[in-house]
Design a protein around this nucleic acid. Structure first.
Lengths: 206, 206, 206, 206
DNA sequence: AATGAATGAGACTTCATTCAT
DNA sequence: CATGAATGAAGTCTCATTCAT
C-alpha cells in the first residue's frame, strides 16, 4: 500500500471511518438487544448509527458481516477479562483456581448479558457464523491446559473428558444464572460461585 | 399488532385431514433440521408436505403455529421416555437414581438430536413460544421433588439451588455431548454417564 | 388489528422522489378510472407508475394511503375551483348567486368525472377514509353560511334543513348529470343549470 | 378468469332447496350489513347459512350471483311498497300526489337502511351488476308517466328533464336523510317530507 | 466517500372455486 | 345432493442490496 500524500488528512479520514464502523456495530448491538434480531434491518441499523445504508455497505459487505462484527467485539471484551484472570488461576491450587475461573465466568457473562443472550439464542441461524463455536473450543483448550498443569492435584482421569464436563457445566450454570436473573444480589452470586466451585472441585478430586 | 396464534386452527377429524396435518408437521420438522428456520417458508413447507399452502392455513393459522406443533410433538415424544424412566429412579438410592436420570437425559436427547438442536438454538426468537421454557421448568420441579424425597442421603443444602445446579448441568452435558457427537459409541456413552453421575452425586453428597 | 395508515410515509424532498410520488398517484388514479378499485393492486400500480413495489412502499405505507392521496389531490383540484367562484356568489343576490353555485358544481364535477365516479362509488369501503365525508360537510357549511348572509331574501325557514335540501339536491343533480353524460352539449348544460337554479331558488323564496 | 354468471343455477323447486337458497341469501345480507363486503367470503356465508360451501355452489354459480340475489330480493321488497302506493298517487292532484311519492320514497329507504347503504356504497364495484341502474330507470319512467298524466297542473316544461330533476332530488334527499339518520323522529320525518314536497311542487308549478 | 432512492425476490396469507367421498 | 378438504392464483408488504448523484 502506498504512503499517503497528506498524512493528517488521511488520518482524519481513517478516524472518521473508524467512528462510522464503531457507530454501526454499536447500533447493531443496541437494536439486537432492544428489539431483537428480526427488527435489525440494515436500513434501521444505518439510521440508528446516523449514517446512510450506502455507508453501511461501504464498510460491511452484508448484514451477516455486521452481526459477526458485533460477536467479535463481544468476544474481545470477554477475552480481556479472561486473560486478566487466567494468569492468576494458573498458579493457584485447584480449589482456589477453580473458584477464580468460575468467578471469571460470571464476570464474563455479566459484560452485557442481554447482548449475550441475543447472540446465544437468535444468532446461530445466521448460518456459518462459527465464531461462537471457535470461541468455546478455545475456552475448552485453555481449561484442559490448566488441568494438565495441575494433574497431580486431581484424580486419575481422562483430561479431555474432564475438561468437557467442567467447561460445559461452568458455562451452562453461569450463563443460565446470569441470563435468568437468578443471581441478582452479591450474596446470591457468592452462593452460586460456591456451589459451582464445589461441583467442579469434588468432581475433579477425591 | 395482530396477536400471534399458535394453536392449531381445527382438530382434524377426518382421516384425510389427519394425514395432511401430520404431513405438514413432518415437513416442517424436516426442513427445520435440514435447512434451518429461515428456509422454512410456508410455501416450502406445504410443497414438501405435498399439499397446497391453502391446506396449510386450513389447519394452522400461522407459521408459528406450525413450529409450535413441531415443538409440541417433540416434547410429547420426550415425555414418553421421561415418564417411563422417572418411576424407576424415584425408588432408587441416590447413586443409582442419578445414574438412571442421566441415562434418561441422554436417551431423551437422542430422540431426534438435530431437531432438538434447531429447536433449542433457533426457535426462541419465535417470541412467545414459551413451551420450551415451561418444559424445562417442569424438569426442574421434578428433580427437586426427587431430591426432597431423598434428603437424608444428601448433605444439608439449599434444595432449590442444588436442583438448579444439577438439572442445568445434566441438561447441558447431555445436550452438548449428543449434539456434537462426542458420544458416538456405546462405550463413550457409558463413560459420559459415569462422569456426569459422579459429578452430580459427589456434589450432592459428602 | 393493525391500524390503517393513510398518511404518506415521508415528504418527498428530492426531485426524483417527487416524481416517483406523482407517478404513483397518477398511476393509481388511472387504474382506478380504467379498471376499477379491485384491479388496483399495489404491484399493478407500481408497474404502471414505472417503479418498483418497493418504491411504492417507500412513500405510502399502504394501498389505502395511496387511494387517500388520490382523493386528496382530486379534492384539492376541486377546491381550487370552488374557492375561485365562491367569492363571486357571496355578493350576488339569491337568484344570481345560486346560479353561480350550480354552475360551479357542474364545473367541479367535470374536472375528472370518471375519477369522481370511482371515488364516489367504490371508495367508501376503504373504511375510515373520511375525507369525502369531511369534504361534503364543508360544502354544506359553506352553503349554510351563504344562506345566512342572504336571509332577508329567503322565506322564513330552518336554515339547517334548507341547506341540507339544497346541497344534497345540487350535488346529486350535477353529479348524476355529468356522470351519466346527460349534459354533453353546452346547450344541455345551460338547460340543466336553469332547472336546478329554478328548483333551488323557488324552494328558498316565495 | 371465468365469466361471472349471475343467475341462479336452477329454479329451486323443492322445498328444502328453497330453504337453503333463502338461508344463503339471508346470510349474505346479514354479513354484508354487519361486517361489510370484504368479510363476506363464500366460506363464511355458507357457514353462517349453516350449509357447506359445496351447497352454496350448488345453488349459486358465483359469489356475484349471490350478491345479485340479495339485491334482487331487496328490490322486490322495495317494489312491493312502490306498487302499493303508486296507485294512490296516480289519482291525486300534484301537491298531494308528490307528497305521497316522497313519503313512499322515505318508506322504501327504510326497509333495511343498512343493507341499502352497503348495496349503494360497496356493491357497484362488483362490476356489471346493472340491476340497480335498471331499477332506477324504472323509477324515472314511472315518475315521468305520472307527470304526463298531470301535465295540465304543471308549467310548460321538458318532461324528460323535469322527471330527471325530481326523481334525482327525491332519491338523493330521502336516501341521505335515512342513511345518515337525519330523520330519527316522526316529527323530523314529517318536516323532511314537507320540505321535499315543497321543493318539487314549486319546481313543477308556477 | 456519502447519500438515499430504487429495486425486486420472496415471505405470509386469503379466498373463490373445485372435486373426491 | 351434501360435505368440507384441497387448491393455487393473487394480493400486500418487507428488506437486503445496488447504484446514480
Amino acid at each position: 500500500m502506498r504512503k499517503p500524500l497528506t498524512k493528517p488528512r488521511k488520518e482524519a479520514a481513517q478516524e472518521r471511518s473508524r467512528a462510522t464502523v464503531d457507530a454501526l456495530i454499536a447500533a447493531t448491538a443496541r437494536i439486537l438487544v432492544r428489539e431483537g434480531f428480526d427488527k435489525a434491518s440494515t436500513n434501521r441499523i444505518a439510521a440508528v448509527a446516523g449514517v446512510s445504508v450506502g455507508s453501511l455497505y461501504q464498510y460491511f459487505p452484508s448484514k451477516e458481516a455486521l452481526v459477526a462484527a458485533v460477536i467479535e467485539r463481544h468476544q474481545q471484551d470477554t477475552l480481556r477479562i479472561v486473560r486478566a484472570e487466567l494468569a492468576q488461576a494458573a498458579n493457584q491450587p485447584i480449589e482456589r483456581g477453580v473458584r477464580t475461573l468460575v468467578a471469571m465466568a460470571v464476570k464474563a457473562h455479566r459484560i452485557d448479558p442481554k447482548l449475550h443472550r441475543v447472540l446465544a439464542e437468535q444468532i446461530p441461524r445466521v448460518g456459518k457464523l462459527e465464531k461462537v463455536e471457535t470461541f468455546s473450543r478455545e475456552n475448552y483448550a485453555l481449561f484442559k491446559a490448566y488441568l494438565e498443569s495441575h494433574r497431580q492435584e486431581i484424580r486419575a482421569v481422562d483430561l479431555e473428558l474432564a475438561a468437557f464436563v467442567c467447561v460445559t457445566s461452568i458455562e451452562a450454570l453461569t450463563h443460565t444464572a446470569v441470563l435468568h436473573q437468578e443471581i441478582a444480589s452479591g450474596e446470591e452470586t457468592e452462593a452460586l460461585i460456591d456451589e459451582v466451585t464445589r461441583l467442579v472441585v469434588r468432581y475433579l478430586t477425591g
